[in-house]
Simulated assay, not measured.
Amino acid sequence: MPISKRNRTVTLSKTKKKGKEHKEAIVNAIKQALEDYASAYVFTFENMRNQRFKEFREQHKSTGRFFLGSNKVMQIALGRSVADEVKPGIHKLSKFLRGDAGLLCTNLAKEEVQRRFQEYEEHDFARTGSIATEKVEIKEGPLDQFTHEMEPYLRKQGLPVRLNKGIVELVSDFVVCEKGMPLSPESARTLRLLGIKMATFRLHLVCCWTPEDFEIYNEELDLSDIE
């Protein structure tokens, strides 16, 4: 029999693509922020944690505005050359909007912005693919921190465990991860169970624009295409 056209699988996880109107809204919001605030910064981030970043952004809500998203859209908002820049010299910022980068418009003094970014860091559990910052090895013996119900789950993560009189026991030494090596999904889950946090969410200032000057904070950056 032919397949009924009525019986179709509908994917509920599909989301509508953000179109031209959404991009134009971001461009307009950035242009308005450049009018409302005295300076603009490009920053990069490592080990992004959305909730932590949201909290950091809330702390600066009264003094500035953050933008994350398409680098291309942010570049368009700033202007990519002298000919289309929205403020004198601000197109230089767009050259640094590459990779994991964002934009901050603020009224805070330069020294205060630098201090807040330098002091900010949040430790969290590393995710799959992250590079281990240390070797973690579990020694043979009882694992008292785990209940007997956890034994099947630990075995699924590759740990050589067994139940001994209701106590989870590691039958031989086990290396969870090696320093400098990417974490497997099992290693990342095991580190979380052990309470070991290897990821640090940090924000790094790259450069700053004000009506008076343009300053670069990372001297190792390629400046060959900066006019």
Rank of each mutant, 00 (worst) to 15 (best):
N164K: 15
I138L: 15
Q145M: 14
R162C: 03
G129P: 12
I167R: 02
E140A: 15
T133G: 15
E119I: 01
P152S: 07
K165Y: 14
E134H: 09
L163Q: 09
G141R: 09
L159G: 02
L143R: 08
L143W: 06
R127Y: 07
T133L: 10
T147F: 05
E137R: 11
E122Q: 13
G141F: 05
F117S: 01
G158S: 02
Q114R: 11
R127L: 13
K135Y: 01
L159K: 04
V113D: 02
D124V: 10
E122K: 15
S130A: 15
R155Y: 01
R155S: 07
E121I: 08
G158T: 03
Q145V: 05
E137Y: 00
R162Y: 00
L163E: 10
L154G: 11
E112R: 10
G158W: 02
P142Q: 04
Q157F: 12
E122L: 03
I131A: 04
R116H: 10
L143H: 04
Y120V: 07
V161M: 05
Q118T: 11
H123G: 12
K165A: 15
G158A: 01
I167Q: 11
H123F: 11
F125E: 08
T128N: 13
D144A: 04
T128D: 12
V136A: 02
R127D: 09
R155G: 05
P142M: 01
R116I: 10
L159E: 03
E140S: 13
D144G: 06
F146V: 00
Q157D: 08
G129H: 12
A126W: 01
Q114F: 05
E149Y: 10
A132V: 07
L143G: 06
Q118A: 13
L163H: 09
T133I: 12
V136Y: 02
K139W: 00
F117K: 02
E112M: 04
F146G: 08
I131N: 08
F146T: 00
F125K: 09
M150G: 02
L154F: 04
